[in-house]
Each structure stands twice: as structure tokens, then as C-alpha cells.
Design a protein around this nucleic acid. Structure first.
Lengths: 238, 238
DNA sequence: CGTGAACTTGAGATTTCTCAAGCGGGGTGG
DNA sequence: CCACCCCGCTTGAGAAATCTCAAGTTCACG
């Protein structure tokens, strides 16, 4: 179990060498998932938890008529089905890029969680922060304009990618289509496209291909009414 | 620390008598909060976790210009600031009715969590289910019509109130105004009002005063595309 | 009996959606 | 090596859902 997850966990509480060792000793089978493929589907009952080692992915639910809601984007070091530690998942996950995913048996994980309270605390904090992110998305979808919503999401992505070192210098690899953004924000693709153009014209961002370039960080934050507090990350500016 | 919380926890994993005893022995100061008053505000840094003993409450965030997003409604037995176990809260909580709230010092709680793994598991499951509910609300706000959203919320409320025995026989005490509903669903009060009327005219519900009456449960579920699975409650029909 | 909060109604304004079509680049088969 | 095709992006334009503003109504409560 590699460094990215451990670094991620350490954002929410110091770990001792013993804690770290226990994590590194976790049995894990590594699997590669091609870009665009489902990592697991909505009805999945696997008993392994999945940690994203390399690549980017997202979680989503699909309604009967095909409408889709994306609920999170993930970077290396993220556990994409924390819920599986104790419950069953109610969502699917799909790879945005080629992904390397570690499968950790639930039993091995719970054993470590019981023996190492600081590790349990860190994992639990992970799921609490996930909840905080969901709440912030709810505020966006419920009460913010399309423009503020998009700007806010881009801010969040930037901060999170920066935190795992997947970008920097105002350039971030974020290989989503406008359809993905629309499905994450509860908008139509057409409208997403037009708002994105507005943000480009306002010289806040440039977002073509698979790369997001931040042209005016303060401006983008203001447009999205963004305050990174809810991410509970240690101060790292951005 | 009373039965409602314990019953709530036991939905997500059996507890031993020792577990229960440890919970009952938790030190807690009980506080009464008048209807309409804030239980805690957004910037609150208290180190006590709050368990709702009696009454109903909700959590919310408020934007700079006063727009409000409600993120959950709570019944007796709910922990309304689980996040506080390890982090700081990013939301406020307000009482809908007179509420009795237990304040449990974080340190006492974490001590129990470390000593009783099943208790930790149950609390953690509580926060995972909270996340599942948030995701379902996101689906609603992002991809469902106003009518489906309202119907879905009412279904959820009914199931959760039934689970804590706060109602039954298709009548549930749910003392919110249409403004509360609007703020929970990301709608305007006017539109909420009209859709509610449509649901009444369709003979799915009756919702006047502080009481929700379900006239046609299958119809309401269908209108809200509701499937209680995400609540992870033990089968109890409804 | 007065008052205020909550609910209701009407009507025009906006945002956002849907449908429909054209454009452009990269990948692929001939 | 090139033409074709598909996916993703873009544009236009009318339609729908939802919002805002503004009043009026009702009802519980003092």
C-alpha cells in the first residue's frame, strides 16, 4: 500500500511509524483499468476496498432513464469506496484515464483499523471530509448559479490535485469532457459549454483538451465563492 | 446517553452489553433549545458532540447574500455534528421544535471509540450513511424535477421518522415550513408551494400544519423514484 | 380583534433545457 | 497515406421549468 494513500491519511492526523508499517503491510492485489471502463458498478458486492494508485476516476449514479449524476472526482491516494468497509456501495465508479487500483480485502482493513486507532481515525476523517465535500456540492447545486457552480468545482479540483502533486504552476491535468462536468453539476452539456466559454472570455481559466489552466486564481475563487476550509487540508495556500 | 441513539447505532451492527454499557456511561450534559433557535452556528468550535434526544432539527449553510441550503433533517437519536469527533464543523444547526440535546465531550467519545470497536464501527457507519443520504440529495438536486425531488424528500423523511417511531399509520410529525422545504431542495418557496399543491391534488399526500399525511405511499414512491436502499436500514417495510 | 408568519395566487422575467445541426481533430481501416 | 467516422465541442433558436416580484389570504396567537 503505497505512499499516496498514506500521505493522504496524514492530512488528517499524524501517524506513527507502526501505523505506517501496518498500512504498508496490508495485503493488496493491484489491478489496471482502461480509460473509460467501469471500476465497479452500482450493484457491486465485492468485499474489497479500492484505493486509486494511479490515474483519475469518478463516482456516479445513473437513473432509470439514463440521466447521470457524478458525485466525486478522484486522484491517486483516494479510497473510492470507503463505504464498503462496513456497508455496500450505492454508486458506480469509472476510470477517466488508465487507472491502477489496489484491492484491499475488507477484513484485512478492519483488522488494522481495530489495532491502530490513529489509522482508524484517519480513515474515518477521510469519510467525514468526503461528507463535507458532498455538502458543498449540495450548496452549489441548490443555491448557486451555473457559473458559480462551475467555478467552484474547478477551484476544488485545483486544490485537491495540487494537494496530491498532480499539477502545479496553475496547470492541472483534469481529463474530463464537458459532459462529465455537466453531469457533476446538474447542468446540460450545452449550458455548461456556454458558461465555460464565459469563464474563458473573462480570462479566469483556459480549459481545452485534458488540461485545466488557471489564468486568474483570485478571480476564479471569487466567481465560485470558493473557500477551501471545508476540504480540511493543512494550509498549503493555493 | 439514552436509548434512541443506541437503537440508531444498532441499525448498523450488533452491540454487546458491554458496548451498550459504555455508551450509557458516557458523560453528557443535557441542554434544551427553543424552537427556531440555532443549536450551534457555522463557526462553532465547541469540542462537544451533540446528540438529539428529543425534538427535530436541521443542518444548513448560509451564503454571503443570505441564500440558505439545508442539508439534513434530524430526528431523536441522530448525532448532528459527527464531524466534530475529529474535525471542525462547516455548517450550522437549528431546532425545528423545542429540542433536548446531549453534549458529549469529544475526548470521552473518542476514548469509548478506541476501547469498543463495535461502537466505533457503528458510529462510523452512521457517518457513511449520512454520506449516502447526501449523495441521494445530490442526485435529486442535479437530475430530478422539482416534483420528483419533493416526493423523494418526503419519502425519505417518512422512512426515517418511522424508523425512530416518530409517527406511523401514514401520519408523521414533520414541522417544517415550505420555506424549509425550498431551502432543502434548492427551489423557490413559490415553486415549492405549487408543486406541493400538485402532489395534494394527485392525492399522494396531505401536508398542512406540521403534519405530513401519506395518502398513497406507492404513488409517492413512484413520483420520487424512491428506493430506500441507500438508507441502509434493516428491512422494516414502509 | 390586531398582528405576523406562512401560505397562496398571478404574471412577467430568467435561467436553463432541448432539439438540431455544423465543426474539428484524432484514430482507423482501406 | 488518405478518407472517413466518431466523439466532443460549438452554435442557434425555440421551449420549458423555475424564479422573482408583488399582493392577497388565512390562521394561530397574544
Amino acid at each position: 500500500m503505497p505512499g499516496r494513500l498514506i500521505a493522504n491519511l496524514e492530512n488528517y492526523g499524524a501517524l506513527t511509524p507502526a501505523d505506517r508499517h501496518a498500512l504498508e503491510a496490508l495485503p493488496a492485489r493491484s489491478v489496471v483499468c482502461p480509460a473509460g471502463a467501469e471500476i465497479f458498478e452500482e450493484g457491486d458486492t465485492s468485499s474489497d476496498c479500492r484505493v486509486l494508485l494511479k490515474g483519475q476516476a469518478f463516482r456516479h449514479k445513473t437513473l432509470a432513464d439514463g440521466r447521470r449524476q457524478i458525485m466525486s472526482f478522484h486522484a491517486p491516494g483516494d479510497v473510492i469506496d470507503l463505504q464498503r468497509v462496513f456497508l455496500t456501495v450505492d454508486y458506480a465508479a469509472t476510470a477517466l484515464t488508465v487507472c491502477e487500483v489496489a484491492l484491499v480485502p475488507r477484513t484485512a482493513l478492519t483488522a488494522v483499523l481495530e489495532a491502530y486507532p490513529q489509522v482508524a481515525r484517519a480513515f474515518w476523517s477521510l469519510s467525514l471530509v468526503e461528507g463535507a465535500i458532498f455538502r458543498e456540492w449540495m450548496v452549489g447545486m441548490g443555491r448557486r448559479s451555473a457559473q458559480a457552480r462551475i467555478a467552484h468545482l474547478l477551484c476544488e479540483v485545483v486544490v485537491r490535485l495540487a494537494a496530491v502533486g498532480a499539477g502545479g504552476n496553475d496547470r492541472y491535468r483534469f481529463p474530463v469532457t464537458q459532459t462529465h462536468l455537466a453531469d457533476a453539476l446538474g447542468l446540460s452539456v450545452v449550458h455548461t459549454n456556454r458558461v465555460l466559454q464565459a469563464l474563458r472570455r473573462a480570462r479566469l481559466i483556459d480549459f481545452r483538451g485534458r488540461e485545466l489552466v488557471v489564468l486568474d486564481w483570485p478571480g476564479l475563487k471569487a466567481a465560485g465563492e470558493f473557500d477551501a476550509g471545508y476540504l480540511q487540508l493543512p494550509e498549503r495556500a493555493a
